[in-house]
């Protein structure tokens, strides 16, 4: 009895040390008090489980949801966006800055000229619903290679036309299924689903999959950007890492 209790305490202490060591290596950039412990454990555990970068499940086209729910903005009111939309986004561009060799504004045609990936995946919202769609776009890893991402990069930060911003780590940024998507279900990406370019991060929940992406920043820290939390979903109370 005495012995087993001592073993217990030793075991718990060892687990704690391993936990702290693992999470120090990859702490999420923001956390809320006591919830920082579980957020860090989840993030560290997922980074270990996903170290070999397995793909999220893909489906056949017959599984596509016909009336995929529209979440959030349906058509951003921003006047410049509406002008660009009227011209079919011919003069639209995405600014890529930060730890890259060629920071520039890149046109939609540029992204479409790069090799495309098409995937039928499931979108899961933190609210509880889920739906399946086919997404076509360029792998973010390919874009990062083209613009010459520097080795010290740790995060990619995205801003959108409708005022959202968020960031993902390099493990998700370089994952083969992480896309800057411009096509949906075989056609152009509709405005309600984030035209002309949206993010697909298939191993995180819906709220990380930003629509209407307008700016992209490659960086080694997010604590000096805006409120320093790495995401404006955080402001609403949601964790930066949404793998669960």
């Amino acid at each position: 009895m005495k012995l087993s209790r001592r073993q217990w305490i030793a075991g718990a202490a060892a687990a704690g040390v391993v936990g702290v060591a693992a999470s120090k290596a990859s702490l999420p950039p923001s956390s809320r008090g006591i919830f920082g412990v579980s957020d860090a454990l989840t993030y560290a555990a997922h980074r270990v489980l996903l170290a070999h970068q397995p793909l999220a499940r893909e489906f056949g086209r017959d599984m596509i949801t016909p009336d995929f729910p529209v979440n959030g903005e349906r058509s951003p009111g921003d006047p410049l966006y509406q002008q660009q939309r009227a011209r079919k986004f011919a003069d639209w561009s995405l600014s890529i800055t930060g730890l890259v060799e060629t920071p520039e504004d890149y046109s939609l045609a540029y992204f479409k000229s790069l090799p495309a990936r098409t995937q039928v995946t499931q979108h899961s919202c933190e609210e509880g619903w889920s739906a399946i769609a086919e997404w076509t776009g360029v792998q973010l890893s390919r874009v990062l290679k083209e613009v010459g991402v520097q080795p010290e990069a740790r995060y990619v930060v995205f801003e959108t036309v409708d005022g959202w911003w968020d960031s993902i780590d390099m493990a998700d940024a370089l994952h083969p299924q992480t896309l800057l998507a411009y096509g949906m279900n075989g056609g152009e990406l509709p405005v309600a689903y984030g035209a002309p370019l949206r993010l697909r991060v298939e191993r995180q929940l819906g709220y990380k999959n930003l629509k209407y992406v307008s700016r992209m920043l490659v960086t080694n820290r997010v604590d000096n950007i805006k409120d320093g939390t790495g995401s404006n979903a955080y402001e609403a109370g949601f964790a930066w890492y949404a793998g669960i």
Partner: peptide, 21 residues
Amino acid sequence: TMSPAVTAAFPQLFTLFGGRQ
């Protein structure tokens, strides 16, 4: 099985429960 990350590592969970929903 509701986690998009855990199920990427263990897709067998979908077989066990018959899907995310």
